[in-house]
Amino acid sequence: MTRRSRAAYDVAVPAPSPGGGRTAAPASPASARSIGAPVSIRGVSKWFRTGSSFLHALDEIDVEIRPGEFVSLIGPSGCGKSTLLRVVGGLLPYELGTVTVDGNSPAQARDTKQIGFAPQTPSLLGWRTVRRNVTLLAEVNRRGAIHPPLGESEILELLETVGLGDFLDRLPKELSGGMQQRVSLVRCFALGAPVLLMDEPFSALDEITRNEMRYLLLDLWERTGHTVVFVTHSIPEAVILSDRVLVMATKPGRVVHSETIGLPRPRSAQMEDDERYLAHMRSVRRALGEVSAR
């Protein structure tokens, strides 16, 4: 990188400060829309060029995801979770293998707006109100869309569900960190895309808020039936949310363990005492432990 001489007039633009979380309103009845699509990842390998050498980021990843399945990726940091998510989302090229989203290449899926993305930070646009942040993705690349975005009433219903009904016309800087993350989730769902990719969306939240967000996410997901690929660092989060937990190992990034979660749906906080839940937790922890020990 060249050094840019801009110091003289450089301006520090402070970021809006995050705050604590809030409790959400109870869920309203479901408007059943089952739109999940299958995702197929076959023999995918990916290298990053770092200077003169190559970094083997993904090694022969094979994952078949059913329509409407909730899959979590868990693993030590740097094992390629975000990379895999970006590959599926068509945001990064890959060298070997094939990825299809509902039969299309990731690039096609991106162009036809079949993928909803939730980044690690809420990334709300500060000048837009909550309502207009949620509709942002519907506004761009209109012609490409093959699935209609949610209508205004459906969006309002989602915002009500996550407890933001009274904050529709507020600006992001007026919201706590947890509320901002809820806007981000609703924005992801509002696109109406069959596949949602979420990259550690709750990692910046405190433990209590984070716990609430799990059930909010489940609530949103259970009424729509999207296919979700969810990256997380938290074993309890992965187990309570998912149909399947994939444990990844690092150097090179690969899937070393697949845990199918046998807990019934809808999931609730009571299941956290369930013997099966605890067994899955142990099993995932053991797989992760083996990964980290190596």
């Binding site: 801009r6 003289a8 007039y9 450089d10 301006v11 633009v13 989302g89 068509g90 945001l91 991106r110 162009d111 707006k113 993928i115 909803g116 993305f117 980044p119 690690q120 930070t121 809420p122 990334s123 709300l124 646009l125 942002l136 993705l137 506004e139 761009v140 690349n141 490409g144 696109l191 990719l197």
Partner: peptide, 29 residues
């Protein structure tokens, strides 16, 4: 020029990736 250039370049990476994930055009971005 320097300030506007700095401003145009300092986009929030998450928001940028988000818009790219639905193939927003350069003009839209």
């Amino acid at each position: 020029t320097i300030n506007e250039f700095t401003g145009l370049r300092s986009v929030d990476p998450g928001a940028y990736e988000l818009l790219r994930s639905v193939s927003a055009s350069r003009t839209e971005i």
